[in-house]
Amino acid sequence: MAKILVVDDDRELVESLTVLLEGHGYQVDAAFCGKTGLQRIVSNRPDLILLDVMMAHDSEGFEVVRQLQGESSTHGIPIVLLTGIRRAKKLPFSFEPDADWLPVKAVLDKPVKPELLLKTIDDALASAVSG
């Protein structure tokens, strides 16, 4: 059973995602900020991380991604970014998965349809296993 870590500062959303993912047969762990998220990653070693970009600080999610990428032990864990940022912020770049800059499996817009979210997670896990 795959382990998924959900990191988001909206507790209700985390709760609903937990129920949704558990209902879909995943084991779910949750963290409400980037710092605890990182601790959980180290302690729990999840198979996939569902990460909100904008938590308490605007770029907390990005920092989590960078740190994970930096450590060899966490390097291979697939990340799916769940964000409301890219249409609200005036980012000077296309906010898309990028091997160097944003090494994540997928970027999804909040609010994402549960069907799409589940399919994306399935695909990401499948490609991580095969890759």
């Binding site: 209700e12 959303l13 609903s16 995602l17 949704l20 209902g23 909040k110 994402v112 069907e115």
Partner: peptide
Amino acid sequence: LAFVTHELKSPIATMMNYLYLLREQKL
């Protein structure tokens, strides 16, 4: 307008998740 609509995103995402679970009779 942008701020308000942005802030609506997470609550709506929550609602949609539960709606899905209810509709799919997961609950």
